[in-house]
Design a protein around this nucleic acid. Sequence first.
RNA 1: CGGGGUGUAGCGCAGAUGGUAGCGCGCUUGGUUCGGGACCAAGAGGCCGGGAGUUCAAGUCUCCCCACUCCGACCA
Length: 478
Amino acid sequence: MAKDKKVEQITDMEVDFAQWFTDVCTKAELVDYSGVKGCFILRPYGYAIWENIQQVLDGMFKRDGHENVSMPMLIPESLLQKEKDHVEGFAPECAWVTVGGSEELPERLCIRPTSETLFCDHWSHVVHSWRDLPMLYNQWCSVLRWEKTTRPFLRGREFLWQEGHTLHATEEEARKETLQQLEVYADLCENYLAMPVIRGNKTEKEKFAGAVNTYTIECMMHDHKALQSGTSHFFGDGFARQFDITFTDKDNKQKYPFQTSWGLSTRTIGGIIMTHGDNNGLVLPPRIAPVQVVVVPVAQHKEGVIEKATALYEAIKAAGIRCRIDVSDNSLGWKCAQYEMKGVPLRVELGPKDIEKGVCMAVRRDNGEKIPVALDQAVELLPGLLDQVQQGLFDKAKKNLDEHIFAASSIEEAKKLQAEHGGFIKTMWCGELDCELAMKEQAGMSSRCIPFEQEKLGETCACCGKPAKHMIYWGIAY
RNA sequence: CGGGGUGUAGCGCAGAUGGUAGCGCGCUUGGUUCGGGACCAAGAGGCCGGGAGUUCAAGUCUCCCCACUCCGACCA
């Protein structure tokens, strides 16, 4: 069978990247469409990826002293309106509950687009003393934002995420928390999802509604577009003032605490797909793959094959590796194609000839390499192979990122570089909104972030020629 | 919200100038196969996206909705 024949169900990414993405999402059985636009069904395989991300993040949050809570899904309109910038940011995409049973409600209720206001309202009741601080809260939930156009994972009206909300006695401590949580996201992305990130500061224009500072990690997709993969916000004491959250400090003075929030959503799964996937389908980083190893018996009708394969599967599973075996009567070719499509990092083939030689064949999803592994060493060697796949994915993604960052000294040049290569274009920038708008208008790029790792590319802003304040990254974003 | 595309079996599609619905894959059952998407046979499965019209007759013509999808603007 010709090699290109087996991918007939998935559109090549070079032909149509958006279609390729949708194909992978559905063919790998990650999502299904529901009856409501923008509300996607996460199927078991897709949800399992989210559960693995949850497990990693939740562990990190708790390690750092955070506690999980559950806030209501409904926000009274009056509560939402307490912070002006925040309402303005979210009002256009709120969905409202106006009727309960058959009764028109006296005050309409917003289905949470994010929960800052709920946390603030709660805190205004329970925070009294410096001894109550810090509040280190997190919740796993879904939120609703009435988006115009929707895509699986990348933009849903309802999506799953976690939102961390913390409250601190001092600005310094809150700022530290903000950056610490950004680093948690970077850790997740780089060390578990094999997605290299650029850490940085959002511009005034791009920052979160109501925030003083928004920090972001930006990833680069296979098509060289940017994906904002996690954000962390420092709020100052603005919300605290609006919601009248006060505490008595050690010096017996009434003070407003400082607040942060940070979120990471199922959008990140879209990032995994677009970072690692290929024309055969999904490619999952071993650390979050629901199935890390699939055992495929070859010529399984032959005497003893299924027994041997099952024993191998049991041994792998017992070693703590997430493993499946496929003894269905589908053909070998079908099974190979199937697990490639689903992105299983390692396929272990075991047939009569292998059994004779006392080996099995491990096949890497990321590069197709076939590695003979002695049967009696398989359990010891597979974790190392999984690590190699994990590293291989990261290296490939890192190369893609590094090779698609270009420096420009004018909008014209930035536009040209973007058109020719895509990716991030770095320039010097004066810090003015007008220049940001000009870049969007003339080159179609938004600012991605002002990276923490600054370089001096020149003295003047690439847009207006005035003295530059920062180096900034531009790109086309999802 | 603007512009384009598409809605017919689970999926992918055919169904010129109107005449009561078909193909491929998948599914079920039985058999033969089996080291990269196997084959044969017999089956099951449709309010032709929805609603109004025109007509003796509408998947097909007209109008209005709706959904999905792509490209913009907005956003995690």
